[in-house]
């Protein structure tokens, strides 16, 4: 490749803090996750009286066929059987009968059995059984969940700042960009698209707007070429930056990683290895990995301020 970086803008000179949204924990989601700890330990025991959340077994007698049943089982207060009848059952004892009048007619409900629900409080033992490395107590688990929330929020919130930082670094750097290298970037991507379409029984150059829909965000082959040509310069810059960063931080990728990528692609897309390799040639893989490495380096830089 004849293209090269003449001078690179140091990304550490870019103040990314104003670009980042502050992280706000979702306390409700945290509490929900903590409650889930107890799900496998919920006990159902035969009881005498119905409380909300208990399983009630009943006999219903009514002129309305819908409510004339020898045996019905529902969870009191869940609203999934019938709100009024569930409310009627709450507080009843086994053997007791209560009557009510619904719009559909009168109903007599006799409680024939009850299973009381007992939900234990989240405990360190429950956390221990999750087998998470370094997570032993409920406090640890809360911190672990919070870290997961933060990571998910970062993934979502870092998109714009990352693009801004990439833009700043590319615009602030000096490149020698060779026209043939750029054409190679565009043609390599076109070849990939062509192979993917061929595998689906289509000819890329003849595809209709309907065929592009949901596959590639363009309406015609010419739009696709224009899009790839437009993106080609930046992608070439990212590749050159990625190679430069790799020289400094030791990032390397090659045949072994390509083999893993293809295996993963085959699993994810249910295609043959031959098709996976045709759609993702080794040189495309290498180019994309090094271009992606520029993103990785800059994303990790942003993370320090999140």
């Amino acid at each position: 490749m004849k293209s090269r970086v003449l001078q690179v803008k140091d990304y550490r000179d870019v103040d990314v803090k104003p670009l980042l949204k502050p992280f706000t924990p979702d306390e409700e989601a945290l509490e929900t996750e903590l409650r889930r700890l107890a799900n496998p330990y919920i006990r159902w025991e035969e009881g005498e009286q119905v409380s909300a959340g208990d399983q009630a077994a009943c006999r219903l007698v009514s002129d309305c066929p819908r409510f004339n049943k020898e045996k019905v089982r529902f969870v009191a207060g869940s609203g999934m059987f019938h709100q009024e009848l569930e409310a009627l059952a709450i507080g009843m004892k086994v053997g007791e009968t209560r009557k009510t009048v619904l719009p559909e007619g009168g109903v007599a409900l006799t409680l024939t059995g009850v299973m009381n629900r007992t939900v234990p409080a989240p405990s360190d033992e429950m956390v221990e059984k999750l087998g998470l490395e370094g997570v032993r107590t409920v406090t640890d688990y809360r911190a672990y969940l919070l870290a997961q929330q933060k990571e998910a929020a970062f993934k979502q919130d870092s998109y714009e700042p990352l693009n801004r930082l990439v833009r700043d670094v590319i615009d602030g750097s000096e490149f020698v960009l060779n026209r043939e290298d750029w054409a190679a970037v565009v043609n390599r991507e076109l070849d990939r698209c062509r192979a993917l379409c061929r595998q689906e029984g289509m000819v890329l150059e003849e595809m209709t707007p309907e065929q592009f829909q949901g596959r590639i965000p363009v309406k015609s082959y010419h739009e696709l070429v224009a899009m790839l040509q437009y993106e080609g310069w930046d992608k070439l810059c990212r590749y050159l930056l990625g190679c430069l960063y790799a020289e400094n931080d030791g990032f390397r990728t090659g045949e072994a990683e390509y083999g893993e990528f293809i295996a993963d692609y085959v699993r994810s897309w249910h295609v043959s290895e031959e098709n996976a390799r045709e759609a993702n040639p080794y040189d495309s893989f290498l180019f994309n990995e090094y271009a992606g490495h520029a993103y990785t380096v800059l994303k990790e830089y942003i993370r320090k301020f999140y």
């Binding site: 889930r36 799900n39 919920i42 959340g53």
Partner: peptide, 13 residues
């Protein structure tokens, strides 16, 4: 899957 596990914990039958 977690949502289903919550529902199963509420309605075990």
């Amino acid at each position: 899957s977690k949502i289903l596990e919550d529902i199963e914990a509420e309605i075990p039958f």
